[in-house]
């Protein structure tokens, strides 16, 4: 029923905030076709042949980086992985200088992950290459949001009207931010839950219900999304201990039973078993965590194709 755009505006994917519903639908529909490529004997199409894609990661990541790398290779692109350890203490080369130096090899796209919110926006303004945000600070992780939406849509047939619970460190989670922007645009009913010390202000302005009670969030939910808790948060005094976190907010089989019988359990990974999620839940029949990984490749192929596959994004050598 809703419209699907025929192309994406702009050369970059910086955040869900910049996408409208028709563009989101375009990406998800294209990802469906891309998912089929993964089922072929030869898992390759020539769409990005001769184009260079650089994975520029300033934060360590195996999962997201390999997902992008597979997606790029399946589209026949030439990939380059660059991992830069950036410390807030050591100054070294600036972000802009690093990127402009890489532009010299004329990449069509740079996939960038960085510890500072807004880093991708800075690069998008300065570089000719298309910038795909693979996670900037605590701001957004748009391809994660898209693959989560794809997974929900695949399992449930739709997103509008679903009750979706998201539980965890909401304040620092870029996955959370991308997801609420995306799922509310598609008409879902979001219940966000976490400790009050990790609750961002203004959720009601975004049409999201906020609660500190997990039972309330997962009651009757169609999908439950668990977010990762990072150890540093405990050192920051946001909550007293991991044990207490699990008792109050952890996803246990008992809590899952409060949701709908066909509810799905999601997690962006990597999981902390026994902290935000019990093993039985992570490995149980309702878990779609591994599907998320598969879908991640398809969604990233779709994004790369839509940004660079049209020929318009050719960077003059």
């Amino acid at each position: 029923m809703s419209e699907t755009a025929s192309r994406l505006r702009g050369k970059d994917l910086l955040g869900i905030a910049d996408l409208d519903v028709s563009e989101i639908n375009l990406i998800l529909d294209t990802a469906e076709a891309m998912k089929e490529v993964a089922s072929r004997p030869i898992k390759k199409v020539p769409t990005l042949r001769g184009k260079t894609v650089i994975n520029l990661f300033f934060e360590p990541s195996t999962r997201t980086r390999t997902s992008f790398e597979i997606a790029e290779k399946r589209l026949s692109a030439d990939t380059l992985n660059i991992a830069i350890a950036m410390s807030s203490v050591v100054k070294g080369e600036t972000l802009i200088d690093t990127a402009l130096n890489l532009e010299a090899i004329a990449p069509a796209i740079m996939v960038v992950r960085h510890a500072s919110s807004g880093a991708c926006h800075l690069l998008a303004r300065t570089c000719r290459a298309g910038i795909v945000n693979a996670g900037d600070g605590t701001h957004e992780h748009p391809t994660q949001g898209l693959l989560d939406a794809f997974t929900i849509r695949e399992r449930k047939g739709r997103i509008a009207g679903l009750k979706i619970a998201i539980v965890g460190d909401l304040l620092h989670s870029r996955v959370f931010r991308s997801n609420i922007l995306l799922l509310t645009k598609l008409g879902a009913d979001i219940w966000a839950c976490g400790p009050p010390t990790l609750m961002p202000p203004g959720l009601d302005r975004l049409g999201v219900h906020a609660t500190t009670r997990v039972d309330e969030a997962v009651d009757g939910a169609d999908a439950i999304m668990m977010l990762r808790i990072q150890l540093e948060r405990m050192q920051g005094g946001f909550f007293p201990s991991l044990r207490e976190y699990f008792t109050v907010f952890g996803m246990t089989p008992e809590r899952v039973r409060l949701a709908k019988p066909d509810a799905i359990i999601m997690h962006p990974g990597p999981m902390n078993r026994g902290v935000e999620i019990a093993s039985e839940v992570a490995d149980g029949p309702a878990s779609v965590i591994l599907d998320q990984v598969t879908n991640g490749v398809a969604v990233r192929m779709a994004v790369l194709y839509l940004l660079a596959g049209g020929g318009e994004n050719e960077v003059a050598a």
């Binding site: 905030a17 919110s117 807004g118 900037d136 600070g137 605590t138 701001h139 957004e140 304040l171 870029r174 931010r177 961002p200 202000p201 203004g202 302005r205």
Partner: peptide, 12 residues
């Protein structure tokens, strides 16, 4: 400033 806009932008 700690508030809605900083939260939306992922700024501490």
């Amino acid at each position: 400033h700690e508030g809605f806009h900083a939260a939306q932008l992922g700024l501490r």
